[in-house]
Write a protein that binds this DNA or RNA. Sequence first.
DNA 1: TCTCTGACTAAAAATCTATTTTGGTCATTT
DNA 2: AAATGACCAAAATAGATTTTTAGTCAGAGA
Lengths: 197, 197
Amino acid sequence: MSIDRRAEVVQAAARSFALFGYKATTMDQVAKIARVGKGTIYTFFDNKEQLFEEIMNAFVEEIVQLAEKAVDPAKPFAENLHRALLDVLNFRREHELFTRLSLEMKEIGTAAAGFGIRMMEEALLEFVARHVEDAVAKGEIKPCDPQLTAYVLVKLFITLVVDWPSVSGRPFQEEDVMRLFELYFLDGISQKSGSPL
Amino acid sequence: MSIDRRAEVVQAAARSFALFGYKATTMDQVAKIARVGKGTIYTFFDNKEQLFEEIMNAFVEEIVQLAEKAVDPAKPFAENLHRALLDVLNFRREHELFTRLSLEMKEIGTAAAGFGIRMMEEALLEFVARHVEDAVAKGEIKPCDPQLTAYVLVKLFITLVVDWPSVSGRPFQEEDVMRLFELYFLDGISQKSGSPL
DNA sequence: TCTCTGACTAAAAATCTATTTTGGTCATTT
DNA sequence: AAATGACCAAAATAGATTTTTAGTCAGAGA
């Protein structure tokens, strides 16, 4: 039985994309790493972008499934959000493809890298929006536009996990992020209800 | 009495920066618009960047003063935030220097434009952080890191006023921004206290 | 026959070179 | 003493040339 050349190609490409980014990954290189002829790649994928898309798709699916698994419909929104964010956080830390692509996207303006990022963000937004909608329906959170709320939520997440650490120098611990999320998003910073004894 | 050449230079440069951006503004052009010799500019400013800095400084000062005027120490934090943000919002809409520089910063990577933007953001952050500190001291909002809170607040502001409109296509009205700010930041989206009668 | 390959090609990217533009200077004028 | 614009070096731009790379295809190997 011959090896699964398609899988070899995908694995090699995934490694190369994660290691060098989209632009610096050449098809010759992928072929070499996968130990196949370059033409073989083109029997499975029409072009470089499609190969990239496949890998991003798998990546996105993995993340969404992870988040989905963290959600228990019986449990409250805040708790589900908590667990899902934690998982995404950890996943990000382990797989640096996302981080590298973000960099490439911002430093160089690679179109495909931008596409990849946008795809991930859109998938994440869709996922969050769906759960926000549920939570609103259940009366767990106030009525609001699910799309916008998801957008704000994800932006706040990125602000806390990516932007602020790079501005202030010190990254947060997981628990910090969760506590801050509750403070800034779920409960609000306004000191109005529970008067301090 | 001779004209104030320095003021002429500053005015000409301000116009040109706002109209063409940092990079596309040449010192020859500024000299011509200001109707002075190019050398004259260099009797007031060491170089192009310093000229730019002066103009940005004035700009930032104007904004901060505007915001400061909107704040009444006797009034609650939420209301002050409300008014200050409204003023900044309007100012932004009127003066396009900020917008143009943001674009230049993102499309081309002009270092000086980046510097200008960062300056504005830092000034704004400092302003907000100071007032957050006050509000915490007065017990109007929950105890929190003023720096971080200011950062989150400004980011949310930009998310609502700049990012979301460009994503969704439809910009917000002023009142919308304010209402959303209350929902997402001050009160929180969590449906916990006031049960919906 | 069918899968797989790597030399090949056209197009894009990088490199090099010639030319122009531009920030900054300074001897001269006012 | 204040102001100027011709001047210069350095940087940006444009164009020509070379290199790299995505994608093809005739043919080798099974």
